[in-house]
Design a protein around this nucleic acid. Structure first.
Lengths: 142, 142
DNA sequence: TGAATATACTTTGTATGCAAATTAATTTTG
DNA sequence: CAAAATTAATTTGCATACAAAGTATATTCA
């Protein structure tokens, strides 16, 4: 082959792309019951960890695109999961607050991580830990 | 914390999601010069490896969504990268053929993998190999 | 052989991801 | 202090990812 570096099988990136798409697809079924998409679920996890943060903090924690976040938060507001409050100290900012429905959803969500584990069933716990560490290196700013 | 399994930091999936998005974003700059998006680049790599395959084979090789593939191939046809030919043996099928422009693009693409390596600069070659193997396990059907 | 299935692909509608432009408010500077 | 620069969000336009429905062609099977 003229350019072996162009073989799909040699691309880490293509594997990342497939793996990410696959896992998000696997989340669909458990999340549909909570009426959440995967990015919305990420937002919920961030808020369950720390409620009342600004949109900027939410973007930082989730790595979701800013333009997308506006739309996502709008939809989540429509579903009474959260509310968007203007920050009186700095009127550029908006603070996100969990609504009761959003707060309680965590109990139903608690079983999701276990359901997803079958996506990693080919992997030992040690390998999963290794994968986490390697992905952290990819995610490091360089 | 009430449900530690819901912590974002504990999610392999979130790391995969971030890593995949990041790498695709890194590809944007080199690919924009070839007037290709990342999925379009994947299609090109598949065709550079084996020209004249059906759409079904292309879907299999690339893991791109079928519905998206129709649109992607349409755009690539408009850019004279390839042509879509009806298979006379089985009229349900369509065969994808590289056009001269698409074929020649491989020479310009040959330098891209090296440019992307900086995305993995925190990682040794051995770690990259390890990552590939772990991702292959995630991508295995279970 | 004709109806039921299955296969290959397309279409549609919703939800992002991303870059770039825009708006509003705050901070920095000259 | 006022203009310039910066920051926080939103908006816009394009390109997927995905599920589900639809279309056309082939195959299977009663």
């Amino acid at each position: 082959m003229e350019y072996p570096q162009l073989k799909l099988d040699n691309q880490i990136c293509h594997r990342l792309y497939m793996a990410s798409n696959r896992i998000i697809r696997d989340y669909r079924e458990p999340l549909i019951k909570l009426d959440l998409t995967y990015p919305q679920y990420i937002v919920m996890m961030a808020l369950w960890e720390k409620d009342g943060i600004t949109i900027a903090e939410l973007l930082e924690k989730t790595s979701i695109d800013g333009g997308a976040m506006t739309q996502i938060l709008k939809k989540m507001t429509d579903k009474s999961l959260l509310s968007i409050v203007k920050d009186e100290d700095d009127k550029r900012r908006k603070v996100i607050k969990l609504e009761p429905h959003g707060d309680e959803l965590r109990h139903q969500a608690a079983s999701i991580p276990d359901k997803i584990k079958c996506s990693f069933s080919q992997m030992t716990d040690q390998e999963a830990q290794q994968l986490i560490e390697l992905l952290d290196k990819v995610n490091q700013e360089s």
